[in-house]
Design a protein around this nucleic acid. Structure first.
Lengths: 211, 211
DNA sequence: TTGATTTTGCAACTCATAGTTGCAAAGATA
DNA sequence: TATCTTTGCAACTATGAGTTGCAAAATCAA
């Protein structure tokens, strides 16, 4: 029974103000716990969605006590936000200079499609489309996505422009939103796999539209 | 205190089997109640999203007792499904023969954009992107959307083909998904209004890609 | 007007889950 | 070994989903 909340007996406390805990002593905070919980959260998010997500179920699945979750993240929303934030910070869309705009577009499309196929991608997509999960995290997601997806895309367009494959009046952001949007339509609305043949059709239209 | 659950005193009941209630007598089921509840449900769905949707709050907002809701729809999911189903059955995308493919595409795009601007459109979009709301209704939504959006689109493509504005190897469904997908990207991800200028940029790329 | 029939509001329940609290035990450092 | 922090555990409160029984209201038919 250490450190009664006031030690009301004798010897006044050294520091009556709330001191911040020092992190170099004591049992270390288990990284596996944090990781396991966030992983499970993502899986729940991807499978049942944010509406049916249950902290107690996550705790059971991660083999961790519920209190250990609430000690790290104050609310369910914060937990979801943390899980999504981790996805976002680890997100990096691959880019490659294939030598042709067609090749670059195909590569980018397959990269996005691959991400949307993972639990993290599913979870993120749902979160972004539902402001309600957590407005702040949805905003962050939009910012990060724009940033991460933006720079490879800009580079791609610059290369294409140098090769004379990109007309001046075609807005890169519009074209990118058409590619990604078509993928969203295919995956989330039609619930069909974005096959190579399908992606080829999209890229063909974009190519003619842009050169 | 009428109709004790068995009338255990005298005179055996005429029909011991459970008879279905006849609908031509008694107090009629209030249509305003149903309408108000579904309207409020859509608003809730559009504003706070399916995750935070509360039946009790809907009941308060619709000025109806909670039990009256549960007597019509057995669960929260069923309520959401009913609200969305009503949207779907009332959904009809306007179509118009403007005389040119560019005009037709612009009109279709603005029609979709207008729908996405309403609460019903917001609610539907969220539901479709979250299988978790109700798998069955999400599936229905996809089917209906394809059906409703498909036929105007097919007519549009036929007209364009007759005018020689549509090349044979361009898949109409792909092009449609690019248009709608770009709109989704713009509205849900970028959270920006699909202005006429922006829509013009999309249509310009599509036009060149398709002719 | 009365009786039969159905819907509605109301209040009181059960149950699951979000979130909290106090304490003892488990690890870690010095 | 002494100190410190994290963890598990059990018990708690609060809220909202979904249920139930009953009285009042509304409708039609005799």
């Amino acid at each position: 029974m250490p450190s009664a909340k006031r030690a009301a007996t004798h010897r006044a406390p050294r520091k009556p103000v709330a001191r911040s805990p020092r992190r170099d002593v004591g049992r270390p905070r288990g990284e596996p716990v944090t990781e396991a919980v966030l992983d499970r959260t993502l899986e729940e998010l991807a499978s049942v969605g944010p509406a049916q997500l249950s902290v107690e179920r996550i705790a059971r699945a991660a083999e961790v006590n519920k209190t250990s979750i609430y000690r790290r993240w104050p609310t369910r929303e914060a937990l979801v936000a943390a899980a999504l934030e981790r996805v976002l910070t680890h997100l990096s869309l691959a880019q490659k200079d294939t030598g042709s705009l067609r090749g670059d577009l195909l590569f980018l499309g397959e990269s996005v499609a691959g991400f949307l196929d993972q639990p993290a991608g599913q979870a993120l997509m749902r979160a972004v489309f539902m402001e309600a999960v957590a407005p702040s995290i949805a905003a962050l997601a939009r910012r990060q996505l724009e940033e991460r997806a933006g720079s490879p895309a800009v580079a791609m367009v610059l290369r294409a422009r140098a090769r004379g494959e990109w007309r001046d009046d075609a807005d890169p952001k519009v074209v990118l939103s058409m590619l990604v949007g078509a993928l969203l339509h295919r995956v989330a609305l039609e619930r069909q796999r974005p096959t190579r043949a399908w992606l080829g059709g999209v890229v063909a239209v974009l190519l003619r539209g842009v050169t």
